[in-house]
């Protein structure tokens, strides 16, 4: 029973970590740009495809098969590439909705998500089919008599590290100060010789790159990736960011852990829980927002008189 409990806890933490990486992007983009980038999940899931393609290209040319270096290199390539994809999508589409009503950007990015998915499906070789995705780390360690995959610890560790780095960057660097300045008021930031357009591009890069790590972990944790996996990942990441409070990084973490928690809890304890896992996750979303209308850690909506 203890082993089972530990297993559930591990599942919860790993899922929560992966969702956090995606939710952080939503939160960051909303905080800085006031934009809902609904295709963020789909962009994140581009990363595992880049990894697969790069690994293939590497081992067929320079590196020997099943070399760890190929995988590590490919992940780095994918993170950077997907960061650039985010910047590109912003430049092509999303920036045109900066001053439009929030719902327009939301609808446009839903369509953009479909475009990203269908592009993967069309242009990745046999993109309709699911692709096996390797475990980043295969071995496991044993605590007592409980085997814990190193990969799970790795996911949790990297997520914690990413969160720490993001907090560092936002709180203690010049870049972070600039980002926060633009988030606060882009016009006044401009007066302070900060170019909002550059900050927007940097924000998109960071958000998409962090999302890419989430996407790679997601694929690696599932063991498989398919072009449409980004839909649910995006929806859950978005929900996590919103119930945590958009614009709050702590909120994104909290929201992710909550949603992953209810998902695991419902499946572990209810007889028919698995079929209702989405029902409970989204009822939780409704409940949280009824009680805390701007998310758990979101700034309350000010009614100025």
């Amino acid at each position: 029973m203890d082993a089972q409990l530990a297993q559930y806890l591990m599942n919860w933490l790993v899922l929560g970590s992966i969702y956090t990486l995606v939710a952080l992007g939503f939160s960051l983009l909303f905080g800085v740009l006031d934009v809902i980038h609904f295709s963020h999940g789909d962009v994140s899931i581009v990363a595992p495809f880049v990894v697969l393609a790069t690994v293939q290209a590497l081992i067929s040319t320079v590196l020997p098969a099943d070399s760890i270096a190929a995988l590590v290199l490919a992940c780095a390539v994918a993170i950077v590439a997907v960061g650039l994809v985010g910047v590109l999508l912003d430049w092509l589409v999303i920036r045109r909705f900066r001053n439009a009503p929030a719902m327009m950007a939301l609808v446009a990015t839903v369509a953009l998500g479909t475009v990203v998915r269908e592009l993967i499906r069309t242009f990745y070789p046999q993109g309709s089919n699911p692709k096996p995705f390797p475990r980043l780390i295969e071995s496991s360690v044993t605590f007592g008599d409980l085997p814990v995959p190193l990969f799970s610890l790795f996911v949790i560790g990297v997520s914690v590290l990413m969160v720490a780095v993001l907090f560092m960057v936002m709180g203690h660097t010049r870049l972070g100060v600039r980002i926060r300045a633009v988030a606060e008021d882009r016009n006044i930031a401009r007066l302070m010789a900060i170019r909002p357009d550059r900050i927007f591009a940097v924000t998109f890069f960071i958000a998409s790159a962090v999302g890419a790590i989430g996407g790679i972990f997601f694929a690696s944790y599932a063991g498989v990736v398919r072009f449409d996996f980004g839909v649910q990942l995006g929806l859950i990441g978005f929900s996590a960011a919103v119930i945590g409070g958009l614009g709050s990084m702590q909120g994104a973490i909290l929201g992710s852990l909550l949603i992953a928690g209810i998902d695991t809890l419902v499946q572990a304890t209810m007889a028919d829980g698995a079929s209702y896992r989405l029902v409970f996750s989204f009822l939780l979303v409704i409940l949280v927002l009824v009680l805390k209308p701007s998310g758990i850690l979101g700034k309350p909506i000010m009614v100025k008189v």
Partner: peptide, 19 residues
């Protein structure tokens, strides 16, 4: 709730009804 938060409430409602 308002704006994006309200949008998410309705999205969640739609998903719950469908499920």
């Amino acid at each position: 709730t308002r704006e994006t938060y309200l949008a998410l409430v309705t999205i969640a409602f739609a998903i719950v009804i469908h499920q």
